[in-house]
Deep mutational scan, measured.
Amino acid sequence: MALNTPQITPTKKITVRAIGEELPRGDYQRCPQCDMLFSLPEINSHQSAYCPRCQAKIRDGRDWSLTRLAAMAFTMLLLMPFAWGEPLLHIWLLGIRIDANVMQGIWQMTKQGDAITGSMVFFCVIGAPLILVTSIAYLWFGNRLGMNLRPVLLMLERLKEWVMLDIYLVGIGVASIKVQDYAHIQAGVGLFSFVALVILTTVTLSHLNVEELWERFYPQRPATRRDEKLRVCLGCHFTGYPDQRGRCPRCHIPLRLRRRHSLQKCWAALLASIVLLLPANLLPISIIYLNGGRQEDTILSGIMSLASSNIAVAGIVFIASILVPFTKVIVMFTLLLSIHFKCQQGLRTRILLLRMVTWIGRWSMLDLFVISLTMSLINRDQILAFTMGPAAFYFGAAVILTILAVEWLDSRLLWDAHESGNARFDD
């Protein structure tokens, strides 16, 4: 018995066209964080690309023209004298008006014999932002004059995390709450300039795509075929072959399989920071003279006294001054041990922890910024005066060393310790 099946006739004509040209192939790229070699397709503007294995951002879609970056830099340069030299806060102490600005706080630190601690604050609040705007201006002028731009481009990517104007702005709020127990506070004209400078700096850093600047100024022929001998440069993120001198053909720094002496430098910085954190938390970090009496505060006791007036601000200072430094030390110690013992479990967790400490590390400088600003506000000789204690130097040095330890660690070593050939990683 035959089955009668109805015929289905399409209502619209289906047209099949042959592909007349070869589909576009992607360029081969190595991930600078996990060293995976993959094919990167062509990316349009405002599109980002991520590593298929570790999800690290390979290409950032946010990109401004150099002219727009230069305009932002010149605007920031105009704001800087007002943000640093004009009063941020006014207080009335014992019937006398006192003005506080950024430069005055750094000068008070240096004047009291601790120039190293003052230079830490100076670099993060004044030096690094000033280098940022002058570097962008150098790129703008240098591109037109045919100057060598490689050193500036190499420095810009590392400079971003040292620009800490946003953290200093939080420190202004913390210092205001600490001082309000002794005097009446009012915002100064410099505060508005400083807030504007923070906003412009944040926007500029978020749109400063150094890798795209490398592509514009020093374009290189990408690798179009897969080759395990391809290496990625950690300076400019170019994937290719080393030249005859073993250097990256684009930025001219040595092109090595792994960062040289990464573990040794990381261990040295980490152990030194552990040693410095002990006096930083045991010795007094601030000293207040009130009517001839002397009151010393460690980091913890200062947080407890701050909690009596504002528990939320005390929580912020606790996280930045105690929780973050010790968390960074514990995480980095764990990561280094996992590399030495070739741990194969929990790779995803370790990668996330490394990215976390990379982002939060700079916030530990908050305590030094609060001390710097408070020193310029309260300084009335023996009637009422505020000065920093010996722990300030140890704390600042420990924070900087932990930042350097994270920067010096080559994250690809975590993958080397893991089993080879993993296309995915999980716990």
Rank of each mutant, 00 (worst) to 15 (best):
1 M>C: 00
2 A>F: 04
3 L>F: 06
3 L>C: 08
7 Q>N: 06
7 Q>S: 12
8 I>Y: 05
9 T>P: 11
9 T>N: 09
9 T>S: 05
10 P>K: 04
13 K>S: 05
13 K>D: 09
14 I>S: 09
18 A>C: 07
19 I>C: 06
25 R>W: 06
27 D>K: 11
29 Q>D: 06
29 Q>F: 06
30 R>F: 03
30 R>D: 02
31 C>D: 01
32 P>V: 10
32 P>I: 09
32 P>K: 08
33 Q>G: 06
33 Q>E: 10
34 C>R: 00
35 D>W: 02
39 S>T: 08
40 L>W: 06
44 N>E: 08
44 N>S: 07
44 N>V: 05
48 S>H: 13
49 A>N: 04
56 A>N: 07
56 A>S: 09
59 R>H: 08
60 D>F: 07
60 D>I: 06
60 D>Y: 06
67 T>G: 08
69 L>I: 09
72 M>S: 05
73 A>E: 13
73 A>F: 02
74 F>A: 08
75 T>V: 13
75 T>W: 01
76 M>F: 05
76 M>S: 04
78 L>A: 06
79 L>P: 04
86 E>P: 03
89 L>C: 05
92 W>I: 03
93 L>R: 00
95 G>Q: 05
96 I>C: 05
102 V>D: 00
117 T>M: 03
119 S>W: 02
120 M>F: 12
121 V>H: 08
122 F>S: 04
122 F>R: 06
126 I>K: 15
127 G>C: 08
131 I>C: 11
134 T>R: 00
139 L>I: 10
143 N>E: 15
144 R>V: 08
144 R>I: 12
147 M>Y: 04
149 L>F: 04
150 R>F: 04
156 L>Y: 14
157 E>F: 13
158 R>M: 13
159 L>Y: 01
165 L>C: 12
167 I>D: 01
171 G>H: 02
171 G>A: 12
172 I>Q: 07
175 A>V: 03
178 K>V: 00
178 K>G: 00
179 V>F: 01
180 Q>G: 09
182 Y>G: 04
184 H>T: 03
185 I>D: 01
185 I>Y: 02
189 V>A: 11
192 F>V: 10
194 F>C: 11
196 A>T: 15
199 I>W: 15
201 T>P: 06
202 T>G: 14
204 T>C: 11
204 T>H: 11
206 S>H: 15
210 V>I: 15
210 V>Y: 15
211 E>A: 14
212 E>K: 15
215 E>W: 08
217 F>W: 09
218 Y>F: 05
219 P>C: 14
221 R>P: 13
222 P>S: 13
224 T>Y: 11
225 R>A: 14
226 R>Y: 14
230 L>T: 11
232 V>G: 15
232 V>Q: 14
232 V>A: 14
237 H>K: 13
238 F>S: 12
238 F>L: 12
239 T>Q: 09
239 T>A: 12
240 G>C: 11
241 Y>E: 13
242 P>K: 12
243 D>F: 07
244 Q>L: 12
248 C>D: 02
249 P>N: 12
252 H>E: 05
257 L>N: 12
258 R>Q: 06
259 R>G: 14
263 L>I: 11
263 L>S: 12
266 C>D: 06
271 L>N: 12
272 A>Q: 02
272 A>M: 03
275 V>K: 06
276 L>H: 09
282 L>Q: 12
285 I>D: 00
287 I>P: 00
288 I>A: 01
289 Y>A: 02
294 R>T: 04
299 I>F: 11
301 S>E: 05
301 S>M: 04
303 I>P: 01
305 S>L: 09
307 A>I: 13
310 N>Q: 15
310 N>I: 05
311 I>N: 15
311 I>Q: 15
312 A>E: 15
312 A>N: 15
313 V>I: 13
314 A>I: 14
318 F>V: 07
319 I>Q: 11
324 V>D: 01
324 V>S: 04
326 F>S: 10
328 K>G: 00
330 I>Y: 13
330 I>L: 12
330 I>R: 01
331 V>I: 11
333 F>S: 10
337 L>F: 12
339 I>G: 10
340 H>A: 11
341 F>N: 12
341 F>R: 13
344 Q>F: 13
345 Q>S: 12
348 R>N: 12
353 L>V: 14
355 R>M: 13
357 V>I: 10
358 T>Y: 13
362 R>W: 02
363 W>K: 04
363 W>H: 05
365 M>W: 02
366 L>A: 12
368 L>D: 01
370 V>E: 01
370 V>H: 00
374 T>N: 06
374 T>L: 03
377 L>A: 02
377 L>Y: 08
380 R>G: 01
382 Q>N: 15
385 A>Y: 01
389 G>P: 01
390 P>N: 00
391 A>M: 01
391 A>Y: 02
391 A>H: 01
398 A>C: 10
398 A>G: 10
399 V>E: 01
401 L>H: 08
405 A>V: 06
406 V>M: 08
407 E>S: 08
409 L>R: 02
410 D>V: 00
411 S>Y: 05
414 L>K: 03
416 D>P: 10
417 A>E: 11
417 A>W: 12
418 H>L: 10
418 H>K: 15
418 H>I: 10
419 E>W: 10
420 S>I: 11
426 D>T: 08
